[in-house]
C-alpha cells in the first residue's frame, strides 16, 4: 500500500519533470491541440446553432384546421377538439375562434377586411394543430382533413415539407462533419504526441533496464498527455467563452430574424467548455496511451 502510494507520487513528479525538461515538445503538442480545438470549437458552435435553428423552424410548423361553418356552439367545438387530439400524430391543438381568425386575416391581407368585423364575419372557427413529428406533417394534415366537421386542413404546403427535408439533411451533414473533424483532430493529436514520445523512446528502454514496471513508465506519459490536452484546449475554451457573449450581444441574441434565436450564453459556454476540455484531455490521454504502450511492448 505504502509502496503504491510512493509509486503514484513519483509518477506525478516524473510527469511534471518530464514536461518541464521537454517543454519544447510539450509546447508543440499543446499547439496542435490548440489549433484543432479552436477549429473544433468553431464548428461545434455552428453545428449547435444549425441544430437549434432547424429545431425552432420546425417547431413553428403547424396545421391550420378550419372547421365547417355549422360547428359553432361550445359543445361541438369541445367535441371537435377531442376528435383532433385523438387523431394519430397530433401533439397539441390550440383553438382559434372566428373573430381571432379574422384578425389574423386582417394582419395578413390588410385593413380592407376590417369591414367584416362583427356579425358580418364570414369565417369559421379553427384550430392550430401541432404534429408530434414535423416530418409527418403531411400525413397528419390528411388525416385531420378527413375528420367530420373539418372543412380544410392546410399547412405551409409543399415548401414547408421541402424545408423540413432540407433542414433535417443540414442537421445530419453538419453532425457528420463535426464527427469527421473530431476524428481528424484525434488523429492529428495522436501523431504529434507519438512523435514526441518517439524522441523519448530510448528513455523508455532505459527505464526498463533499470527495472521500472510498465505501468510506472506509462503513467507519467499518460499524465503528460492528459495535461497537454487540457493545456491546449484551455485557451480555445477561454477564447470562445469570452467571445461568444460579445457576439451574442452584438447580434441581439438572434441570427438576423427572431425565428433564429441564438443559444443562450450560459448554455453555450457550458457546452463549449466541457466538450473542448474533455475532448482535449481524452485525445491527449488516448494518444499517449497508444504511443507509449507500443514502445513499451517493443522493448523487453
Amino acid at each position: 500500500m505504502r509502496t503504491r502510494l510512493n509509486l503514484l507520487k513519483y509518477s506525478i513528479k516524473n510527469a511534471l519533470i518530464g514536461m518541464a525538461r521537454h517543454w519544447t515538445l510539450v509546447l508543440s503538442c499543446a499547439a496542435t491541440v490548440f489549433m484543432t480545438m479552436l477549429l473544433l470549437g468553431l464548428f461545434l458552435m455552428t453545428v449547435l446553432h444549425v441544430n437549434r435553428f432547424s429545431d425552432s423552424a420546425m417547431d413553428d410548423l403547424r396545421i391550420h384546421v378550419i372547421l365547417e361553418e355549422q360547428v359553432e356552439d361550445p359543445q361541438a367545438i369541445a367535441q371537435m377538439e377531442a376528435d383532433i387530439l385523438n387523431t394519430q400524430g397530433v401533439k397539441q391543438a390550440v383553438f382559434s375562434g372566428k373573430d381571432q381568425e379574422l384578425e389574423l386575416m386582417i394582419q395578413e391581407k390588410g385593413e380592407a377586411f376590417a369591414a367584416y368585423r362583427g356579425e358580418q364575419n364570414p369565417l369559421s372557427n379553427a384550430f392550430f394543430v401541432y404534429p408530434e413529428k414535423e416530418k409527418e406533417i403531411d400525413a397528419v394534415a390528411k388525416r385531420l382533413k378527413s375528420l367530420d366537421g373539418v372543412a380544410d386542413a392546410v399547412y405551409g404546403g409543399q415548401s414547408v415539407g421541402e424545408m423540413v427535408k432540407v433542414l433535417t439533411m443540414v442537421k445530419w451533414v453538419s453532425f457528420g462533419f463535426e464527427l469527421l473533424l473530431f476524428l481528424l483532430s484525434l488523429y492529428l493529436i495522436y501523431n504529434t504526441i507519438r512523435s514526441a514520445i518517439y524522441s523519448r523512446q530510448s528513455e523508455i528502454s532505459i527505464m526498463r533496464t533499470v527495472g521500472a514496471s510498465s505501468s510506472f513508465i506509462r503513467i507519467p506519459f499518460l499524465l503528460e498527455g492528459t495535461l497537454i490536452g487540457l493545456l491546449g484546449a484551455l485557451l480555445p475554451c477561454l477564447f470562445y467563452i469570452f467571445t461568444y457573449p460579445v457576439l451574442y450581444q452584438a447580434m441581439h441574441g438572434m441570427f438576423f430574424v427572431p425565428l433564429f434565436k441564438m443559444i443562450p450564453v450560459n448554455q453555450m459556454n457550458a457546452w463549449i467548455g466541457w466538450s473542448l476540455l474533455s475532448t482535449g484531455a481524452m485525445a491527449g490521454l488516448c494518444a499517449s496511451l497508444l504511443a507509449v504502450s507500443r514502445y513499451i511492448r517493443s522493448s523487453r
Binding site: R2, N6, L7
Partner: peptide
Amino acid sequence: FAMEAVGA
C-alpha cells in the same frame, strides 16, 4: 529513479 521504480 531506480529506487522510485521499486516504490521506496
